[in-house]
């Protein structure tokens, strides 16, 4: 086959691309995406906090919260795998890039999928700024 034939064949066939983001792309259901907690099930074993390779998760047993620093998460699925009670799940989405230095906090009593947005601890933000310089 030559490229001319291939070009003409492509011209007559349906395009392979989609007009993302106006159209949906198919994301596999097991795509490693955003980490979410179902706080009703958490037994405060802190395994996710201990095993997270980037230390993105902070478990606060007293305040009954799980906090994740989104920019630190590398979506390796370790926390989901170690969780003994299936508290943690991963939503199959592609993570959006962004500069936000935010932490998301999941607390007992919140509805499923709900979280509060906070700022990264000051010490860490300073550290990042120092590193930048």
């Amino acid at each position: 086959m030559s490229m001319i034939v291939s070009s003409l064949k492509n011209l007559l066939s349906k395009p392979d691309t989609v007009r993302y983001p106006f159209e949906r792309t198919d994301i596999p259901s097991n795509n490693r995406g955003r980490v979410v907690w179902d706080m009703e099930r958490c037994i405060w074993c802190r395994l996710c906090e201990k095993n997270c390779p980037t230390k993105a998760i902070v478990t606060d047993k007293a305040a009954k919260t799980q906090t994740i620093t989104r920019v630190r998460c590398i979506q390796c699925r370790t926390c989901v795998d170690v969780c003994p009670t299936n508290t943690i799940a991963m939503e199959p989405v592609y993570s959006e890039p962004g500069p936000a230095r935010e932490v998301h906090t999941y607390a007992v009593g919140m509805k499923k999928g709900e979280y509060t947005v906070g700022l990264m601890p000051l010490s860490e933000r300073d550290e990042t700024r120092l590193r930048k310089r």
């Binding site: 492509n10 011209l11 395009p15 392979d16």
Partner: peptide
């Protein structure tokens, strides 16, 4: 046309 020959929407 170029896009369609390359199998893109364009």
């Amino acid at each position: 046309l170029t896009a369609r020959m390359q199998n893109r929407v364009g």
